[in-house]
């Protein structure tokens, strides 16, 4: 979509994304200095985004789209760090695949790296507080983050291209039909796959999740028991 966001919109999204990315880099530096044991998990979260965002899957609408994979990073590390991870993937796709774009990078970092992860983070924390099953919480967080990303993309395009008759709202409906509707089945698959990979993380690196305050010791113990039973 290179060049598809006109002035002033592409600048707006750059300005909104930049501070979050800068804060994310600061947080990663902090982790690298003070909590080195979390770095393998950070690599895992980045790699998960690499894989999922490369898979263009067919959907029920007769077109293809790809999941984002950003929910996992957001649950583990929060939205700011996830924004940096998404930036890496988006730059790769913009430079080598002509997918996305450099001028639309700000907008894409915002929808995929900030808005989606913020939804994942809040949904996960909300579900945990209401004592929902751990894996169901992960499912909702990752699936809704995926969907939110494409809703925000639709909104970004609608703001830049308001319909002459029905304004931004009508455009949002048109873009939403293309993006968000296609995304629904893919979001469900992303939610399920993310929940499954968290089962494996609990098995091998649950202690780091406790240190990242993603989960408390008692709950981790119960989940581990469930897996080995």
């Amino acid at each position: 979509m290179e060049g598809f966001l006109p002035h002033p919109w592409w600048e707006v999204w750059y300005v909104l994304s930049l501070p979050v990315v800068v804060y994310g880099i600061y947080r990663i530096n902090q982790l690298a200095k003070e909590r080195r044991e979390t770095l393998p998990l950070l690599a895992l979260a980045g790699a998960f985004i690499f894989v999922l965002s490369s898979l263009k899957l067919p959907s029920v609408t007769g077109s293809c789209s790809h999941p984002t994979g950003a929910g996992m990073g957001a649950i583990l590390f929060g939205p700011a760090i996830t924004a940096v991870l998404c930036l890496i993937v988006l730059v790769y796709q913009a430079l080598f695949l002509a997918h996305g774009g450099i001028t639309t990078l700000g907008a894409n970092v915002f929808s995929m790296g900030i808005a989606g992860p913020a939804v994942a983070y809040l949904v996960y924390r909300g579900c945990t507080r209401s004592k929902m099953n751990f894996y169901v919480s992960i499912f909702f967080a990752a699936a809704l983050a995926d969907l939110a990303t494409y809703l925000v993309t639709s909104l970004q395009l609608a703001l830049a291209f308001p319909s002459a008759t029905g304004g931004v709202l009508e455009s949002f409906g048109a873009f939403g039909t293309v993006f968000a509707l296609t995304q629904v089945p893919l979001a469900i698959v992303e939610g399920v796959v993310t929940a499954l990979i968290f089962k494996y993380i609990i098995q091998v690196k649950g202690d780091v999740m406790v240190r990242l305050k993603v989960i408390d010791e008692k709950r981790l113990g119960k989940l581990k028991e469930m897996i080995s039973a």
Binding site: K56, S63, G101, I102, L157
Partner: peptide
């Protein structure tokens, strides 16, 4: 169904909304 990318279809929506007048102002490097 053509199983094209959703972003390609969105470009079609932009064409529809602007009456085909919008030209991307820059192309990929």
């Amino acid at each position: 169904a053509e199983w094209g990318g959703a972003d390609g279809e969105a470009e079609g929506v932009i064409d529809g909304l602007t009456g085909g007048t919008y030209e991307p102002w820059i192309s990929p490097i």
